[in-house]
Write a protein that binds this DNA or RNA. Structure first.
Lengths: 195, 195
DNA sequence: CGATTCTTTGAAAACAGTCAATCTGTGTGG
DNA sequence: CCACACAGATTGACTGTTTTCAAAGAATCG
């Protein structure tokens, strides 16, 4: 399973066999079956997590018991709760698997150690953090500035792979809409595309 | 004007006079009069910016010409566009002054240099970035999960100082509501608080 | 095959957005 | 110093959309 991560890394940076070996040696393979939790709210999140296979979702539950999905993580992307990890505080989020999945975990200390001693690796992660910040920023603008239909179209355009893998009501949750509204937008949208 | 920043720094970390001197020597004082731009969309943002006095707003303009405010920056906080800064790409955002303001600018190179050579300073900034990520995350959850009234109450609770300084229609823009809706929520909210 | 889970559709109610008129306070220029 | 313009806030009436509730039709899974 580490192969997936190796491929991911080599596509972005070059690493000696030794370095790669060091990374592998601190990685922890974790299998999740569908619906299994990786993180539950109230727990402290202590890892960096790379998804090798499958699909995870991160979400919060509000006062009324309604889920709000903040992120989907397919294979070749990352999951976790950075806030909880950095501040070592109880997480507000839940993360669970939407499909049977395989995740690579790295303890924070191990991971930080890798970063400190491998500049290219550090740059990669630094970059990753910047990108994820930009994504969240982008998402926030969509949430306050787009109409429901724009949100839907934007999502399909940006994440067609996710769109084809997760149920519609979860996308509705991600976009902050009711799922009924989303099916309606969708059927209307189809008409507009083929007049 | 550097004194404001000095105070800010000393409240969080300890620095030798020398180090402080080094920081001051690369700082650029910039005065902005009300309505003046610090950044206009299309330009590349190249600084770290600390607000010493006044109040700035960051916002985007959508296709229909409507502003969407992403951030208010009062004195003792930061402003800028991290995405544009890191990727050296044209910014999507505008930043302007809501009051006559004074900002401290640091060129990216100078700033990164300070970070590289002063670990405590680096930690502070690192921390700042984590916090701002958490804030954006939080905001996104509010945007997709809260009712308009909850958004309003949450804003007052979190940012009473901003609430008392910027016009209501800008808060509406920040929250993704029309300003009429916001005044209505507010008058209703007052009734509920004093039955 | 039976049971979830997911999606679609309908109708009614609740809600926010829009348009428009009015009111207030502030500040500028004559 | 006043008058006028301007930015901000409030309110009403109306419109359009979204949510909610409900029922029922697909699809998937054990």
């Amino acid at each position: 399973m580490f192969d997936v991560f190796r491929k991911y890394l080599l596509a972005k940076i070059s690493l000696s066999q030794q370095d790669m070996q060091r990374i592998e040696s601190v990685s922890i393979v974790k299998k999740l079956s569908k619906r299994q939790y990786l993180l539950q709210q109230g727990d402290v999140w202590r890892y960096y997590a790379f998804v090798c296979q499958g699909c995870l979702r991160s979400y919060r539950v509000d006062d009324k018991g309604i889920d709000h999905i903040s992120k989907f993580s397919l294979e070749n992307s990352w999951a976790g709760d950075r806030e909880s990890l950095e501040k070592e505080t109880a997480s507000h989020s839940n993360i669970d698997a939407l499909e049977d999945s395989v995740v690579l975990l790295f303890k924070k200390d191990d991971f930080d150690n890798l970063r400190k001693t491998m500049p290219v690796f550090d740059d990669l992660i630094e970059n990753l953090i910047h990108r994820s910040y930009a994504v969240t920023q982008e998402r926030m603008h969509a949430a306050i500035g787009y109409t429901p239909e724009e949100k839907y179209r934007n999502f399909i355009k940006k994440y067609p792979d996710i769109f084809n893998r997760v149920p519609l009501h979860m996308i509705a949750s991600y976009l902050g809409l009711s799922f009924e509204t989303l099916t309606r937008i969708r059927s209307q949208s189809l008409k507009n595309d083929r007049p």
